[in-house]
Structures are given as structure tokens and as C-alpha cells.
């Protein structure tokens, strides 16, 4: 494309504005996390007067952050691994078989992604509460209930993304495996899964992020012992005096795993996330 002479200027101004807008909160988060308490009380300081690592020690004492962290870790790990396993089989069926109902299945699953969460919240709450009366399984306030819920949240997108990855693997590879005597499942295990591994890892990270960041159901479906980070972090705000340096330190600590994962797998995730819309 031929670029007019002013374009580099427009580029620096436009992208500069976007960078400033994007980065300011990140800057505030990182610098405030290393401020002593006096720096976050009273007027805002651009730079810490002294660099203090105290907030990173104190965050674990002000609220039971370690427990919330553990809960989030268990919920997000189990939910994402289970979700990706279920999604692999479903995506393989959609990618490699023609069967009646295939299109209905894909469309229905994907459309649930777009429904308001609040629509499912009240009934699920009632189901979980009443289920313990009927069959004695207590899903309300348990990590299991949260895991099942989250696993379904990431399922539609995971299936959709995996179908894309599987479609890009030549069918000749499946056929070669089947000629060698393995059935369709053998071909999936020996050929398709290894070939789609980057995509599968990306989808797992996506499912992990979904569960790690979910607020609505976590706020209703958990109690003190099963609280996750999404709700637990608000605990800092209920103190009489909000320790903003600790809040920022805690936000930083809980963000690093997912942001690092996202940026490392950026290429695969972006490919999967955008493929559907671009088609």
C-alpha cells in the first residue's frame, strides 16, 4: 500500500494514545504494588517514595489469599483439563464425521455462549440448593459445583477453536494411521492430538483463563471455605481502611500466571479466537 507522508505521524499519535490508555492501569498496578502504605493514602504519587516489598508479604495475612488462590487453582485446573478433554472428542466428531445433527449441535452449543449468564444463575442456584435436599449431594458452596459450571462455560469456544485446528490437519494423516490398522479413535490419539498439540494447549489456557476470571457465579456459588480469587480479592475493600498497595500487589500476583500464559501462546490463541469471526 502506498503510504501518504502524514501516515507515520498519525500512526505515532494514534498508537501512542492507545498505548497510554492501555498501559496506564498496568503502570498504576505495578508501581503501586511496591509502594509503602503512606504513598497510597492521600494524593496519588506517580513514583514510590521508597520501594517496599512489604505489600507482597502482607497480602497473604490481610485476607486468606493463599486459600483463595488454592481454590482458584484447583477449580481452574480441573475445569480446563476436563473441558479440553470433552472438547477434543466433540471437535473430532465434528471435524471428521458427517452425521445428522452435526450442524444443529455446533450452532446450539455456540449460541449458549452468547446467552446472559444471569439467565442461568438463578435456576442453577436453585438446582444446586435443592439437589442436596433430594439426593444429598451438596453442590452449592462446593468446588465441584463451580468446576462443573466453569467447564461448561469454556466448552463452546473450546470446541469451536479445536474444530478449526483439526480441520487444518490433513485427513491423509488420519488415513495413513487407519491403514496401519488403528481405528478412528487410534487415529485421533496417535495422529490428530499430537499434530494439534499447540492448539490444544492454547485452548486449555483459554479455558483456564475463563475459570480464573469468572465473577458472577463465584460470587453466589461459593462460601467462606470455597471462595475463589474473583470474589476473595474484594475482601481488601471491606477493611476499614483500604490498603491499596496490597490490593495492587494481590492483583499483580493473580494476573501474572494468566497474562504470561496468554502472551506465550498468543499466536495460537489469537488464531483460534479470530478464526470464526473472520470466516
Amino acid at each position: 500500500m502506498r503510504e501518504p507522508r502524514w501516515l507515520p505521524w498519525a500512526r505515532w499519535i494514534g498508537l501512542g494514545f492507545l498505548s497510554l490508555f492501555t498501559l496506564t492501569p498496568i503502570y498504576v498496578m505495578v508501581t503501586s504494588a511496591i509502594k509503602p502504605l503512606s504513598d497510597v493514602q492521600g494524593d496519588f504519587h506517580w513514583l514510590p517514595t521508597t520501594i517496599s516489598l512489604r505489600p507482597f508479604v502482607d497480602i497473604w495475612k490481610t485476607i486468606p489469599l493463599a486459600r483463595y488462590f488454592g481454590n482458584s487453582l484447583v477449580v481452574a485446573t480441573v475445569a480446563s483439563l476436563a473441558s479440553v478433554t470433552v472438547a477434543i472428542f466433540a471437535a473430532y466428531a465434528i471435524s471428521r464425521f458427517k452425521f445428522p445433527g452435526r450442524r444443529i449441535f455446533s450452532v446450539t452449543v455456540l449460541s449458549t455462549q452468547m446467552f446472559p449468564g444471569i439467565l442461568f444463575l438463578l435456576p442453577l442456584f436453585m438446582i444446586f440448593v435443592n439437589l442436596s435436599n433430594v439426593i444429598g449431594i451438596n453442590l452449592y458452596g462446593s468446588l465441584t459445583g463451580l468446576i462443573i459450571t466453569y467447564l461448561t462455560f469454556s466448552l463452546p469456544f473450546s470446541i469451536w477453536m479445536l474444530v478449526g485446528y483439526f480441520d487444518s490437519i490433513p485427513i491423509a494423516l488420519d488415513e495413513a494411521a487407519q491403514v496401519d490398522g488403528s481405528g478412528p479413535i487410534g487415529a485421533l490419539m496417535r495422529v490428530v492430538i499430537p499434530a494439534a498439540m499447540p492448539g490444544i494447549v492454547a485452548v486449555t489456557v483459554y479455558a483456564f483463563m475463563t475459570a480464573w476470571g469468572e465473577v458472577l457465579f463465584a460470587s453466589v456459588m461459593t462460601d467462606d471455605s470455597t471462595r475463589t480469587l474473583a470474589v476473595g480479592l474484594q475482601g481488601y475493600a471491606t477493611q476499614n481502611d483500604v490498603y491499596w498497595n496490597q490490593v495492587m500487589a494481590a492483583s499483580l500476583v493473580v494476573s501474572i500466571p494468566v497474562v504470561a500464559g496468554f502472551l506465550l501462546l498468543q499466536r495460537f490463541l489469537v488464531q483460534g479466537l479470530t478464526a470464526g469471526a473472520v470466516k
Partner: peptide
């Protein structure tokens, strides 16, 4: 860089904004 707000857990990003929007101590 531009993807970071999207990758950040909702609550971490939004809590930072609520700090920035505080009346007396906000940016």
C-alpha cells in the same frame, strides 16, 4: 501490549481502575 487488558482477569483490571478513580487517592 494491546492484548494485555483482554488477558488480565476482569477483577484485577477493574480493581485497578477503581483505585485510579478514587476521589482522594486516585490518579
Amino acid at each position: 501490549l494491546f492484548l494485555v487488558p483482554y488477558a488480565l482477569p476482569v477483577y484485577a483490571g477493574v480493581i485497578t481502575w477503581s483505585f485510579m478513580l478514587q476521589r482522594d487517592s486516585g490518579l
